[in-house]
Design a protein around this nucleic acid. Structure first.
Lengths: 226, 226
DNA sequence: TTTGATCAATTTGTGTACAACGTTGGCGGA
DNA sequence: TCCGCCAACGTTGTACACAAATTGATCAAA
């Protein structure tokens, strides 16, 4: 089978985090599309464990709103709910702006270098990247930029909102036949703008740039839908 | 034993929610003090179930940061972490302000009547309420006022933050020998102010009043600590 | 043909035995 | 007396068997 090697040295909590991150990633990349049914036993077998720890992971994903377990039916990847998506986007906007005001963390040289490398990879991706590559890249950038705030509950909340909105955005973008190539280019421009703001040490500007792009991205999606 | 009667008509999810709310309530009321060890088997027996559903509840509480399970040790009610508390308070301030801007829900007559009754009960509590009564009352008011925003993820986030900060506040307030009677009176004043703002339909004002009081409450606590 | 009930198959939820792990107290030796 | 070892105990984590619930197929009757 597609046995994922379990690391025996990892602690229980590490294994839980790894499983949670991996399945969340698959959901976000649409490997598990909205509405798809996940099998507890299949997942457990794939990761070389039993149902119990896997159920622990799925329960957490259910609390986060990414899946929904129904007795006798299965564990379903939650589907798009436009009304909920709009609320999540609005809240994400405001929280993103807050990252510039609540415990901002001034980036060090290593951080700036990491981001520069990311942006370079992004330029390449604009040319020959698939939607899946693009989303994976987007996730990576998000995780890096999240480090710019030292407020942990803010980080957690933003992370939850990000994963809950991103995959629905991708689904809707494909469905509405949004010009993904154009979206890539806009994202790359955003990163360039963020780099400039970062090098001048203006974290509030970084936050507002992100806020503006999240807002515009959602507007484009809504306009295309109508 | 202290068998809590299980409702056979309730669905699985209802039972889970009930258990979660009850244990969270006990933690917030300091029935389970920070550092205290909870027994899975004891809780399971008390609520007339087995360890499995109880572990599902405790896992959720752990994800919410209210307890921490350690293999071979026990499930401990998380203790106060002043640095984390400060971050949570700051975020709570901003999110509380947001309730006035994100999907505000104009209260109907029933809501206003409910609140008036609450305020009346609050006046009585100022005279002869124990700290435990006061906290229970505070929780009730919080849940009611939360209905003033229609933004569900905002509600959820605020709820998490509220329960995570409130119990630590109570612990610290007792420890720092804060004048709880004075705190009761101030809270009652806050409610009067909120009523006025509500009757004039100014939800943004309601949000700012709450924000101001949360901020001042934390300031008083910090000043008393030093 | 349609409709209805019934049954088998599949899935999640629960209970329980056992493994893994950390703590604590006692015991022995220096 | 003090230190270190270790064994017994209690707790959480895992695995698995079974219960509960839903779905879909199948078949008989209208």
């Amino acid at each position: 089978m597609g046995d994922t090697t379990p690391d025996p040295s990892a602690t229980v909590r590490d294994r839980h985090e790894a499983l949670h991150a991996e399945i969340r990633r698959r959901i976000c990349l649409l490997d598990y599309a909205p509405g798809q049914r996940l099998s507890e036993v299949a997942l457990a077998e794939e990761f070389g464990t039993s149902r119990t720890p896997m159920r622990r992971v799925l329960a957490r994903l259910e609390d986060e709103g990414l899946v929904q377990s129904l007795h006798g039916v299965g564990t379903l990847v939650t589907d798009a709910d436009i009304a909920a998506l709009e609320q999540e986007y609005h809240l994400r906007l405001e929280l993103t702006e807050l990252t510039g005001r609540l415990d901002p963390v001034m980036p060090d040289a290593v951080f700036l270098a990491t981001l520069d490398q990311l942006i370079a990879r992004g330029a390449q991706m604009v040319r020959d990247g698939t939607p899946r590559d693009f989303t994976a890249f987007d996730m990576e950038v998000f995780q890096v930029l999240l480090q710019l705030t030292g407020n942990l509950p803010l980080r957690d909340t933003l992370e939850r909102l990000y994963y809950k909105t991103k995959r629905i955005w991708l689904t809707a973008a494909i469905e509405a036949q949004l010009d993904l190539q154009a979206e890539f280019r806009i994202f790359h421009h955003e990163l360039e703008a963020i780099r400039i703001a970062l090098h001048s040490g203006d974290l509030d500007a970084v936050a507002h740039i992100q806020r503006a792009h999240i807002s515009m991205s959602f507007q484009r999606l809504r306009k295309q839908r109508d």
